[in-house]
Simulated scan of single mutants.
Amino acid sequence: MASTLPVPIEFELPDGWHAAPPDDVGAADAAFVALYPHADSGFTANITIDGEYRPDESTLSEIAHESVERLRQAATTVVVTGDRELGSAEAPGFTQTLAVSANVGGAPRELLQSQVYLAMLDDDDPRKRAVVRLVLTATASQHPAVLDDFRDFVRTVRPDSAATS
């Protein structure tokens, strides 16, 4: 069953991308999934969103490393090819790029993942922290073609100011 986010967010999908029910596309841990309209060698590039409350002292870099370790349990190989902090103290973020070799749908795949971690802090108590993870997964050959779409998408993600708590 699809997960829910710890905080409401809003965003805009890039042109052509369409939402898909997480359970229907095998992404039960995701709260949201968007699919690219053109598959590459039988693999459809996708954007997933998930998140959790993280009131602990872990840095976004450490949380990203935890994600890599979980992915290593399901993939043949996972290599971090780049990472960096982004944002500000009030709106911290972290990004990492992974090269992933995995068996997907019965076929070996060489994939690239671009992951963005956004910390959303409670205005009254910054120790109350939710971390939202945005992930682009694409074949290594298609990744350059969809990366700008993902960057555009990330720029639109923000707390949903219309949501009630």
Rank of each mutant, 00 (worst) to 15 (best):
D40S: 11
V104M: 11
N46R: 15
L121N: 06
V80A: 12
A102Q: 14
Q142K: 11
E52K: 13
D24L: 12
G106R: 12
D123Q: 12
L118F: 00
T137E: 02
E66H: 06
Y117I: 01
A2R: 08
R72G: 09
F153P: 13
L111Q: 02
L147A: 10
F94K: 14
S67G: 15
A75F: 06
L136H: 03
A39I: 00
S165C: 02
S88N: 07
V157E: 14
E66S: 04
F43C: 02
P55T: 09
D160M: 09
R84S: 08
A145Y: 07
E66V: 00
A64P: 02
T44P: 05
I49F: 02
D122G: 10
I49P: 11
R151E: 14
D56N: 15
A28Q: 15
T48C: 04
D24P: 02
V7A: 09
H38T: 12
S114M: 06
S161G: 07
E12H: 09
A74P: 01
A34Y: 02
V7I: 15
F43Y: 15
T156G: 07
D123P: 00
R70A: 00
T48N: 14
D40Q: 08
A28W: 08
S67V: 04
L13K: 06
V104C: 03
R151L: 08
E69M: 13
R109M: 10
S3L: 09
G16R: 05
G105S: 06
A27Q: 15
L147K: 13
K128T: 05
V135C: 03
P159N: 13
D83T: 08
R127Y: 07
S165P: 01
G42R: 10
R151M: 08
V132W: 01
A130Q: 10
T97Y: 12
R54C: 00
S161K: 15
A89F: 06
I63F: 07
A74M: 13
A119N: 04
N103S: 11
F32R: 06
S101M: 11
D29L: 06
D50A: 01
V146M: 05
Y36H: 12
R155V: 00
A163T: 00
F32C: 05
R72L: 04
D152V: 00
L13G: 02
